[in-house]
Design a binder for these strands. Sequence first.
RNA 1: GCCAGCUUAGCUCAGUGGUAGAGCAGCGGUUUCGUAAACCGCAGGUCUGGGGUUCAAAUCCCCAAGCUGGCUCCA
Length: 687
Amino acid sequence: MYSPAAAAARSHHARREFVTAVAERQPTVRDVLAGRGELADDVVAVDTGSGAIIDLHSPAPEGAALSPIRLGSEAALAVIRHSAAHVMADAVQRLFPGTQVTIGPAIDNGFYYDFDRPDGAFTDRDLLKIEKEMKKIISSKKPFFREELTAEAVRALFEGMGEHYKCQIIDSILERGEAISVYRHGSPGRPEGTWADVCAGPHVPHTGFIGAVKLTHVAGAYWRGDEKNPMLSRIYGTAFPSQAELDEHLERLEQAKLRDHRKLGRELELFMFHDYAPAMPIFLPRGASIYRRLVDYIRELYVDYGYDEVITPQIFDPRLFATSGHLENYRENMYLPVTADDLDEALARARELMAQGAPPDEALTLPTLAQKPMNCPSHCLIFGQRKRSYRELPWRMADFGRLHRYERGGVVHGLARVRTFCQDDAHIFCTPEQMEQELSSFNSLLFEVYHAFRFEDVSVKLALRPEKRVGSDDMWDRAEAALEHVLKQSGVPFEVLPGEGAFYGPKLEFHVKDAIGRSWQLGTIQVDYALPERFDLQYVGPDGQSHRPVMLHRAILGSIERFFSVYIEHVAGKFPVWLAPKQAIVVSISEKQYDYALDVQRRLGARGLRVELDAGSDKLGAKIRNARNLRYPYIAVVGDDEMQAGTLSVRSRDDGELGAIPVEAFANKLLAESVAPRLGYENRTGS
RNA sequence: GCCAGCUUAGCUCAGUGGUAGAGCAGCGGUUUCGUAAACCGCAGGUCUGGGGUUCAAAUCCCCAAGCUGGCUCCA
C-alpha cells in the first residue's frame, strides 16, 4: 500500500543524501556555462558531444564539449515533453491516490505516461482536472534535480511508496548493471514536498520551462507491451515551450484531419464501407477509376522491367498452405471458408457421433478450403509446373490478385488496414548469383515509382529473423547477409529492425514521408530460401544439374488500398491530371451556352479526356465552389465571350486563372499532363 | 482480441426521461446569373440492432454490431 508518511520519511532521508552530495560537489554544467557566459534563459540542457544530453545541474564531465541545447531545438522539445510526463504523473498521483506509475517517455508529437489505477481508466473529465493540476505545478516553477542513489536506497524508496512496477524497472536496470538515477521536482501539496521517479533524464531546469501543455487522449496499453500483461491506462499529451507553439501544433492536427482519407473518400465519393462487409472497402466509380490507373501504371512499368503477369485463384485446397507453412504460421489471419455441402455433411456426421456420446469438439471435423492471404504459394505451383531451365531465370512473376486476411477488429483503419486488398505483388525466381542484380534493379523500379507520386523522402529498414519462422538458421544467415551486402554496396543508409522479418525471410522495408511529414511503409522486398525448398522448386543449370532457385517477394506500392489511403492524404485529394477520375469540368454561365458547353465536353471526350459538364441552373459562383470542392484539376468556364471566340476560360486548381484558351489548345495541354511521369529509359537497370 | 469512447436524415451536427430538429445535399418550381453558396416549397428518421427499467426511453441499464483513438499485430 502507498503510505504518504513512509514515503515522506524516505524522501527526506534521500533528500539529506542529496544535500550532502551537493556540498561536496564538483563544478556543475551550469557553473561551466556561466563561466563561459553561455548561460542564457533559454538553455534547457547541454549536449556533451558524445551523444549524451545532460542537465544543467549535473556535474560537468571533464573535457566534454557541453554545447547548450536551447528552446526551439528538437532536442529541447523532447526534454520538455519528458519533463511534462513527470509533471503529469505527479498531478495524477496527487489527484488519484493509490495510482501506480510505470513509464512515461517523450514521443514524436508529445509524451505519454502509463498508470495502473485501481479505479479503472481515466475519463475525459479526469484529463481536464489533471491538466489543471499540472498547470499549478508548472506555474510554480519547481526545480528538477537529479540524485544518484545506491540501488538499495532506490529500491527501498519505491518499495516504500508501493510502486511495484517501478520496482520491476529498478530490478531490470540492476540486472543490466547500470547506475540508477532518481529525478525529483517540487510538488506543492504533496506531503513529502517532492515527486520522484526513476529516470535517466535529462530534465528542464524547472517546471516553468514547460510553457504550454495539453492532454489529448486516454488509451489502454499493456504493461511492457505484452498482451499477456495487465492493461494499464495511458494518458497522451503534448507540450511546447509556449502557448503559441502549442496552438500551432493543434492547428496542424486540424489540417491533418482535413486530409484524412476516410473523410475525403466520402466527400469525393471514392469509396464506401458497409456493415455487411466490415473493413472491406467498396470502391465507387471515381475511386475505382484511380485504383485502376494505379494498377495500370505499375503494369506499364512491368513491361520495361521484364515482369510477366499471372492470374491465380482466390481459394485453394488447404494443402497448398500446409506446404507453404501458412497454416502453421499465418493461420490466425486466414479465412477458411467451407461449402454448404461440406457443412451439412459435417453437421450430420457430428450429430450422429454426438448421439453415440462423442464430445462436440471431437464430433465435428469440418473440411475447409483456404482463401489465399498471399500470392507466393500459388506462384510456387506455377514455377513447379514443369522442369525449368536457368535460361528462364530471373523469372519475375507479377500478380494483382485479391487477397483476404482476417484482421482483428481493433486494428482495421479506413483503407490503410483492411481485410481484402491487392498488392502490386511479384515474386522473382532467380539464381543465387542473380539475386544482387535483382535487388538493385528492384531498387531502381521502386525509386522511379515513388518519384512519380512525388514521394521524395524514402528511408530503408532491414528487418531480421522473427521468432516464429521457417527455414534453417543457415538460410537466414545467408539471406540476411545478402540484403545487408546490397544495402552497403548501394550506399543507402538503413536502420536494422531485429525480429521483424516475415516468417519465411528477412525483408527490406521502404518508408516514405508524406507532404505533412508523416512516415509510411509502402514497399518491401524479402529474400526467401524457404519456400523454394518447401515446394521443392528446381531449375536445371548450365551444368545439367538441378539447383534450387532463390525467391524474392516484393511490392512497391504495397497494398493498393493502403497506398491509396497514403496517397489521398499526401495530395490532400488533389489528384494529378494523369490519375484524376475527372480531369476537368466544363461550367456554363447560363443556359444560352448549353449547346456549346456540351460540344466542348464531347470534343474533349473524343480526345480521350475525362471531362464533366455542369450546365445546371446554379449561379457561376456556386458551380465554381462545387467544382473546387470536388478538386477538379481544371475548371473550364464558358460564357458568351468564350462561345463567340471558340475558347474556354480556364482556372487551374494548382495554378489559378489561366485566362482564355482555345478548345484544341486546352485539349493538348490536358493530354500532355495525362501521361504518367516516367524516368528516361537509360535510368533503368532492369533487363 | 484488449482498454476507452462514439453511433440521431445521404453528410455535418442540435436535442439528457414527456409530440424527433437544423444547415447542406436530394426532389419540384421560380431565377439564366462572369469565377467559393440565388429564392420559394416538398420530401427524407424503427434515433445502429436486440433486450431490460419506467406510466413514459434517442435520453437510464445490459448484450451485440460497426466505427474512432490507443495497445498487440500488420501490406
